[in-house]
Computed example of a mutant assay.
Amino acid sequence: MKREYCQRCLYPKNSCLCKVIKPMSVVTEVVVLQHPSEVKHAKNTVRLLALALPQIRIVVGESPADFVDLRRYLEEQTKPVYVVYPNEHSQTVAEAGASEAAIIILVDGTWRKAYRMLQLNPWLGDYPSLHLEVEDESQYIIRKAKRSDSLSTLEAAAHTLVALNPNVDVTPIFAVFNAMVQHKLTAMPALVRGRYNVDNIKG
């Protein structure tokens, strides 16, 4: 039998997330450069982020040609632009003196693919880089990561928004995220589910 999908959240109807979706808006402009391989990934957190933050701008691509329109748009803006990606030159939001009236760019892909995207697009180096100071571990326990400090793109966006403005309530973002994680865990056989540290998931 063909699986039916919700027309709003695009998840299977038996795992529809609509009941927890509460769209929010923020002053900060969020732009995501998404690697093509992530678009149809079952655990695509950018799709979840867009449900909670409809104003997000998602540009799918890998090479400079894919981002021509975005580059033109950014060059026309007067707001500061930051790339959220840790490197030897990146700073915290406080160190950079960044405010919420900014544009933040996140790169969505595995560490290897994200790094390759940055290498293929040296124009991103024209903008200052930000890294996050987050004490809590990622709640994205259902996806393996080589680094212990790995955050999903959704988590990175939410934490950056809070760093830029501590008064921003990002509960709607984590609500859809946690709903997806819990559904995936519930659907797993008990033996498989036992491999994940479910006690670390925040409600």
Rank of each mutant, 00 (worst) to 15 (best):
M1Y: 07
K2W: 02
R3D: 02
R8G: 03
Y11L: 12
L17G: 07
C18Q: 01
K19L: 04
P23T: 01
M24L: 10
V26S: 09
V26R: 14
E29V: 09
V30R: 09
V31E: 10
L33Q: 01
L33G: 00
L33R: 00
H35K: 05
V39L: 09
V39Q: 10
V39K: 15
K40A: 14
A42C: 04
K43T: 10
N44E: 09
N44K: 12
V46A: 12
L48G: 08
L49R: 01
A50N: 06
L51S: 03
A52D: 06
A52V: 01
P54D: 11
P54Y: 09
I56Q: 11
V60N: 04
V60F: 05
G61I: 12
S63R: 09
P64V: 07
F67P: 05
F67N: 06
R71M: 13
R72V: 08
R72K: 14
Y73I: 00
E75Q: 13
E75L: 13
E76D: 13
P80R: 13
P80H: 10
Y82K: 13
V83T: 08
Y85D: 07
H89C: 05
S90F: 12
V93T: 14
A94P: 04
A94Y: 05
E95L: 04
A96C: 11
A96W: 13
S99M: 08
I104H: 08
I104S: 13
I105E: 10
L106A: 08
V107N: 07
D108Q: 11
G109S: 15
G109K: 06
T110H: 10
T110I: 13
W111G: 09
R112W: 03
A114Y: 11
Y115G: 11
R116N: 13
M117G: 06
Q119D: 13
P122S: 14
G125H: 13
G125V: 02
G125E: 14
Y127M: 01
P128V: 03
H131I: 00
H131G: 02
E133H: 02
V134Y: 05
E135A: 15
E137A: 14
S138A: 02
Q139P: 01
Q139F: 00
Y140V: 02
I141R: 01
I142F: 14
R143W: 06
A145G: 10
D149S: 07
L154Q: 01
E155G: 08
E155Y: 07
E155L: 03
A156E: 10
A156F: 11
T160F: 08
T160M: 11
V162S: 07
V162F: 07
V162L: 07
V162E: 02
A163S: 15
L164V: 11
N167V: 04
N167Y: 06
V168I: 15
V168G: 04
V170L: 04
V170Q: 06
F174T: 03
V176R: 00
V176G: 00
F177C: 10
M180R: 06
Q182T: 12
H183Q: 14
H183P: 01
K184I: 14
A187F: 02
A187S: 15
L191I: 06
V192Y: 03
G194T: 03
Y196G: 00
V198A: 01
D199R: 03
D199F: 00
D199Q: 11
